[in-house]
């Protein structure tokens, strides 16, 4: 393995597309069939960084939940970064993602955080408005992504990779 490995946890409500984002990023595949994740799936991908050593992102695709229980918290241990995922068509999932971030802060006070608002291909059905996204960008990096089309997915992971030291 070249470069360092970093643990990145995907965190968000069920059905927001965490597994699909990993599948798109790691294998360039997509299935619109929803299959709930039990426990955690671990995958990895090496990411090149301009002028820097590449990094290996070890992606923890944690089962969707709206609150962090003991098991969920255990999965988060040692994570270097969090990719919060929300579904633009379900505004409540954004609140859940932010809620999970608040809950995880005590466990991971220095983890890097990026927010992906997924299902950009259904943007005309989004409940999350542009003003909300604009406001969120003032406090954390936000990417509109689509696991279906691939839009924004690599950018979101690249932003995580870019923020990881060294």
């Amino acid at each position: 393995m070249s470069g360092s490995a970093f643990k990145v946890c995907m965190l968000g409500d069920f059905g927001v597309g965490k597994t699909s984002l990993v599948a798109r990023f790691v294998r360039s595949t997509f299935s619109d069939k929803y299959l709930t994740t039990i426990g955690v799936k671990v995958d990895s991908k090496e990411v090149l960084r301009a002028g820097r050593e590449p990094v290996k992102l070890v992606l923890w695709d944690i089962a969707g939940r709206n609150a962090l229980d003991t098991v969920g918290a255990n999965y988060l241990r040692g994570a270097h970064a969090l990719l919060l995922v929300a579904d633009g068509t379900r505004e409540a999932s954004l609140a859940t993602a932010l809620d999970l971030l608040m809950q995880s802060r005590s466990l991971l006070p220095s983890a890097q955080v990026v927010l992906a608002i997924n299902k950009q291909d259904l943007v005309e059905r989004w409940e999350v408005g542009p003003a909300t996204v604009r406001q969120l960008r003032q406090s954390l990096p936000v990417f509109e992504t689509s696991a279906a089309s691939g839009a924004g997915v690599a950018d979101a992971f690249a932003a995580i990779a870019a923020g990881l030291a060294p």
Partner: peptide, 21 residues
């Protein structure tokens, strides 16, 4: 090995329901 990235090596650990590659 990926499972223990970021976790200190000197402790016992339990990771339930892990779907490997």
């Amino acid at each position: 090995h990926d499972l223990f990235v970021g976790i200190e090596p000197g402790s016992d650990e339990e990771l339930p329901f892990v779907e490997l590659a």
